[in-house]
């Protein structure tokens, strides 16, 4: 039964991922759709960050928010992304210690 669930989950996850490969192979988009698709990564980053970051520690939304704030500051200062991640983890660690 669990195997069946896994295979079903794999199929419904794979189809939305693969279909676009065939779409772009067949269809040429007008420029406004290209601009839309080019903006998708930035929009996705926004939608993935907020409000999800509030639930890093579900009962204390400020913890995730402060971890994010440190990440923003370190990123603006031009730190390497690994250091940004470490700085943010450390912040949350000390806030919840």
């Amino acid at each position: 039964m669990i195997l069946l669930i896994i295979i079903g989950m794999a199929i419904v996850t794979a189809i939305p991922r693969v279909v676009p490969a065939y779409i772009v192979d067949k269809v040429n988009f007008p420029n406004w759709i290209n601009r839309w698709l080019n903006a998708i990564p930035y929009a996705a980053l926004g939608a993935l960050i907020f409000p999800g970051i509030l639930s890093v520690k579900p009962d204390q939304p400020h913890v995730g928010l402060l971890g994010g704030l440190i990440a923003i500051i370190l990123a603006f200062l031009g730190f390497n992304i690994i250091l940004i991640v470490i700085g943010s983890i450390a912040t949350v660690y000390f806030l919840t210690f």
Partner: peptide
């Protein structure tokens, strides 16, 4: 426990680290 919870912020921090340089 404390460390795994703190690491929950890692992927969000990565998203922020990807976004900010583009915003700059």
């Amino acid at each position: 426990e404390a460390l795994s919870q703190s690491m929950g912020v890692a992927l969000y921090a990565m998203f922020i680290g990807l976004l900010i340089p583009s915003v700059k």
